[in-house]
């Protein structure tokens, strides 16, 4: 049984940060930047998670997965939802962006350095052949966080992780 003195916060954080996203299983919550904090309160580990989109159907699964992973590692865990400040795609790590591209999903641009991205005015680069000659097929795709694109150079259709 854990108590306040012996709870290893770093170990708990490592467990939570490495839980995988159910819809993008090659990404961890750490890569996505949706694990906001891991704290110890008394004998309980409290992990705070933010939704990507308000209606993200994976959110309940993610919270449950974090809870289960911590419980399995022997922690007395509670998962809380954190709405403020809202998550943005800018918090996806470099490693996360690299993994997205390696899995055929064009990563989102950075809204801090390029405001045009939010208005869909910046070219989206094909994750296969790196061509910038691509066309948007639909604003909405297989999950709320993605849009559908097609590459005019290599003809490959692909998902684009929308800036948010």
């Amino acid at each position: 049984m854990s108590n306040a003195e012996t709870i290893d916060l770093e170990a708990a954080r490592a467990v939570a940060v490495n839980v995988c996203d159910p819809e993008l299983p090659f990404l961890t919550l750490g890569d996505l930047g949706i694990l906001r904090s891991v704290e110890v309160h008394g004998t309980t580990v409290i992990a705070k998670v933010s939704p990507t989109y308000s209606g993200c159907p994976a959110l309940d699964v993610i919270e449950q997965s974090v809870h289960d992973a911590l419980a399995q590692a022997g922690f007395n865990a509670r998962v809380e939802r954190m709405m403020t400040p809202p998550w943005t795609t800018d918090w996806i790590t470099e490693e996360g962006r690299r993994k997205l591209e390696a899995n055929g999903i064009a990563p989102p641009g950075n809204t801090q350095t390029d405001k045009n991205i939010l208005f869909a005015k910046t070219a989206v680069c094909c994750p296969q052949c790196k061509s910038e000659n691509t066309i948007k097929i639909s604003e909405f795709g297989s999950t709320p966080c993605k849009a559908q694109y097609q590459c005019n150079s290599c003809s490959e259709p692909f998902d684009y992780f929308k800036c948010h």
């Binding site: 989109y53 209606g55 097929i137 909405f140 559908q148």
Partner: peptide, 20 residues
């Protein structure tokens, strides 16, 4: 098909906002 993805996606946004 694209609309069949769009409308439920927008519906998800709205229902998600209502949940919060």
């Amino acid at each position: 098909l694209e609309e069949d993805l769009s409308m439920p996606n927008m519906a998800l946004d709205l229902v998600g906002q209502s949940r919060a």
